[in-house]
Design a protein around this nucleic acid. Structure first.
Lengths: 156, 156
DNA sequence: GGGGATACCATGGGAGCGTATGGGCAACAA
DNA sequence: TTGTTGCCCATACGCTCCCATGGTATCCCC
């Protein structure tokens, strides 16, 4: 699971270190998938498993469904597979960088099944904007009844 | 279950001992999840099971739901997984400490399924404030006339 | 009940390792 | 050639893990 957030620097060769904990979350694989976010000025990234989920979900749509084509174009078409070096770094290409407005600092933000890479100031601004909504939405979590399968013992 | 409250000191390396009873509440696991409280100047913490509940609850929201994104950003993006050493200590990073205003003393407060870490004076202030509010609220309850449709049994 | 032994807990310090980051070099394309 | 890309080595710092110490509460035995 991608958790927490980290800031790392982009060097002259446009390389950034993927946070060590994110690399561990990828479970030993040496590649990540990256794509420009559809609706936000940032880069999104994930491992093989989320990519497979996308593929499966798309498989549920009709072959000629326009939406399928749109999704394929924007997700499959825009995604890149990046291999990181032994230092755990990847190279961000110019398109990804400019889409997110990143120059020399990049903030990695874990979102569970995926992560995002933001220009630090832009991330702070977005977060401030989201705060009220997050507070409201907390109620959604609390309202959830305990499911039969869960193990209450583990919390004690 | 996280119960009662304890005060422990933060050393030069920003380490704090997790109260022994809290460690027992984690049921043998050697990690805790920590995140800055969304609405209070303190740190919140919990074990794996509460984190799983968060993740599951979020999974119920639609992928493009703004609330899902807000929650993911504030919960997954802010939470850290901390492993404690054999002495039962964890390291608090600078962001968590500054958000809670903690310098050299930390008060652990059990809240059942999670716990909070406060700067001792801030905790006392909050408690005093809560007490006043609780007293006021009691007055409101007494003043309230019994409604016709209500069930007197349930209130007694 | 007093005294001591023991186990556990909180806290301090040090050493080794992993991570982040900079730079060099060769292969390849424009 | 010149710039770009992938691969490798080098280094410093910070963090994690481990060992050590002192204090306290509990239990047992005398």
């Amino acid at each position: 699971m991608f958790l927490s957030s980290y800031e790392s620097s982009v060097d002259l060769k446009k390389r950034v270190s993927i946070p060590a904990s994110f690399r561990k979350a990828l479970g030993g694989a040496d590649t990540v998938y990256l794509w420009p976010s559809l609706d936000k000025p940032c880069i999104e990234g994930a491992g093989q498993s989320l990519m497979n989920e996308f593929e499966d979900s798309m498989g549920d749509l009709d072959l000629m469904d326009k939406r399928r084509f749109a999704l394929a174009t924007y997700i499959m078409g825009e995604a890149r597979q990046s291999k990181f070096d032994e230092g755990g770094r990847i190279v961000l290409d110019a398109e990804l960088l400019s889409n997110a407005g990143i120059s020399d600092k990049a903030r990695f933000v874990g979102l569970g099944d995926r992560f995002q890479i933001w220009e630090p100031a832009a991330f702070e601004a977005m977060k401030a904007e989201m705060r009220a909504l997050a507070l409201e939405s907390l109620g959604l979590l609390k309202a959830k009844p305990r499911r039969p399968g869960s193990n209450p013992q583990a919390a004690e």
